[in-house]
Computed example of a mutant assay.
Amino acid sequence: MSDVTVVGTGAMGSRLATALLDAGLDVAVWNRTPERAFALREYGATPHESLSEATGASPVVVLTIPGYDAGHSVLSSVSPELRGRVVVQSACGTPDDVAGTERLVESAGAGYVEAVFLCYPEELGTGACNILYAGDESAFRRLSAVTEALGGATYLGGDTTLVNTYYALAITFYYAVVNGTIESASLARSRGLPLAAFNHAVRLALGNIDAVATDVAAHVHAGEHGDSLSPLSIHHETLESTAQLYTDHGIPDSLLHTMRDRAHAGVANGHGHSHISVLSEQRTDGAQAAARGAGEGDS
C-alpha cells in the first residue's frame, strides 16, 4: 500500500509527487491523461490507470486538479473508496465551493482538509514553500508524513473556508507587487535607466513597506481614519504628479492612475485631512450605493 495518492499530475501535481518521493514516501499517482501519470514511474511513483484503484491505494488522497467542479466530479466517481481516508483538496474557489466538497467527502466517511500552496511548483519540498491547511484536526494530524515531507505547514484550524481567504489576502499582495513591478520597470526602460537603478529604487521602497502595510491595515480594521500627519491630500498631490509622469512616457492606465482617481474622489468628498486608509470607506460607500440602487430598481 502507498503512503499517499496524488490525483492530477500537471505541473503542481507532478512536482508534489516527486517531492514526496524524494522524502522517501511511497506515492501512487493518477491522471485523466494516463501518460502524465506513467511518466512519473521513472522517479519511483506507482501509476494507476484506474482512479478507483489509485484512491484505494493510500490512506491519504491529495487532489491537485484545477477547479472545484472537476475535483467534485472526480471525488463523486470514487465515493465508496473514500471511506476512512483523508482527502486533501488544493484549488482556488469560493467558500461555497469548499463547503460543497467538504460535505461530499465527509458524507463518504472520509476526513477533509483544504490546502493551498503559496509557491511555484518547483519550490515544493525545498523549504521555500508556505502551505496553508485547514480542516478537522484529527484528519490534519494524519497528514504528518506529507506535511513534514513538504515543509512550510501552517494549520489554520477547523474552518476549511479560511484557506482560500488567506490565499486571497496573500495573492492580492503578490499581484500588486507584480503589477507595480511591470509598470515601474516599464517606466525605467522608457527613461533609459539601467536595471541597477530600478533595483535600487525597489530596495528603497521595500525598506518600509511592512510598517506601511501594518499601519494602513490597522486603520482599515478599526474603521478610524482621523487627521493624519501624511493626509490624503498629500498622497493625492504625489499621485497626481507621478501619474502624469507615467502618462508622459506612454503608460496612461497604470495602477497609479486608479489610485489618483480614488484619492481625488476622497479629497472631493472632504477627506483631505484624513489618513489614506479612508479610501477603504469610499469603496464601501460605493458598494452600498450600488446595492441600494439595485434594490430600488427591484421595487
Results as ranks from 00 to 15, higher is better:
residue 7 V to H: 00
residue 7 V to T: 02
residue 7 V to D: 01
residue 8 G to L: 00
residue 10 G to K: 04
residue 10 G to D: 00
residue 11 A to M: 11
residue 11 A to E: 08
residue 12 M to V: 00
residue 12 M to N: 00
residue 14 S to Q: 08
residue 15 R to E: 07
residue 15 R to P: 05
residue 15 R to W: 03
residue 18 T to M: 07
residue 18 T to N: 11
residue 21 L to S: 05
residue 22 D to N: 15
residue 24 G to I: 14
residue 26 D to P: 08
residue 26 D to Y: 09
residue 27 V to T: 05
residue 27 V to G: 05
residue 27 V to N: 05
residue 28 A to R: 05
residue 29 V to E: 01
residue 29 V to R: 01
residue 31 N to H: 01
residue 31 N to C: 10
residue 34 P to M: 12
residue 34 P to S: 13
residue 36 R to V: 03
residue 36 R to D: 02
residue 36 R to P: 07
residue 37 A to S: 11
residue 38 F to M: 06
residue 38 F to K: 11
residue 39 A to F: 01
residue 40 L to H: 01
residue 41 R to H: 12
residue 42 E to A: 10
residue 44 G to T: 06
residue 45 A to H: 06
residue 46 T to Y: 12
residue 47 P to Y: 04
residue 47 P to E: 12
residue 48 H to A: 09
residue 48 H to L: 13
residue 49 E to D: 15
residue 49 E to I: 12
residue 49 E to Y: 12
residue 50 S to V: 11
residue 50 S to Y: 12
residue 54 A to K: 03
residue 56 G to A: 15
residue 57 A to N: 14
residue 59 P to R: 14
residue 59 P to T: 07
residue 61 V to D: 04
residue 61 V to T: 14
residue 62 V to T: 09
residue 62 V to R: 04
residue 62 V to C: 06
residue 62 V to A: 04
residue 63 L to Y: 02
residue 65 I to Q: 11
residue 67 G to S: 13
residue 68 Y to K: 05
residue 70 A to D: 06
residue 72 H to I: 07
residue 72 H to W: 09
residue 73 S to A: 06
residue 74 V to T: 15
residue 75 L to D: 11
residue 76 S to A: 15
residue 77 S to D: 13
residue 79 S to A: 15
residue 79 S to P: 08
residue 80 P to S: 12
residue 84 G to S: 10
residue 85 R to F: 10
residue 85 R to V: 06
residue 86 V to W: 03
residue 87 V to G: 02
residue 87 V to D: 07
residue 88 V to T: 04
residue 88 V to E: 02
residue 89 Q to T: 14
residue 89 Q to M: 10
residue 90 S to W: 00
residue 90 S to T: 11
residue 91 A to W: 00
residue 91 A to F: 02
residue 91 A to S: 07
residue 93 G to R: 01
residue 93 G to Q: 02
residue 94 T to H: 07
residue 94 T to A: 02
residue 95 P to Q: 09
residue 97 D to H: 06
residue 98 V to K: 03
residue 101 T to C: 09
residue 102 E to R: 08
residue 104 L to N: 03
residue 105 V to C: 08
residue 105 V to Y: 01
residue 105 V to A: 01
residue 106 E to Q: 15
residue 107 S to H: 13
residue 107 S to M: 13
residue 107 S to E: 15
residue 109 G to D: 13
residue 110 A to Y: 08
residue 111 G to E: 06
residue 113 V to F: 06
residue 113 V to W: 03
residue 113 V to H: 04
residue 113 V to C: 10
residue 115 A to F: 01
residue 116 V to G: 03
residue 116 V to Q: 09
residue 118 L to Q: 13
residue 118 L to D: 03
residue 120 Y to N: 13
residue 120 Y to S: 12
residue 123 E to A: 14
residue 123 E to V: 07
residue 124 L to Y: 04
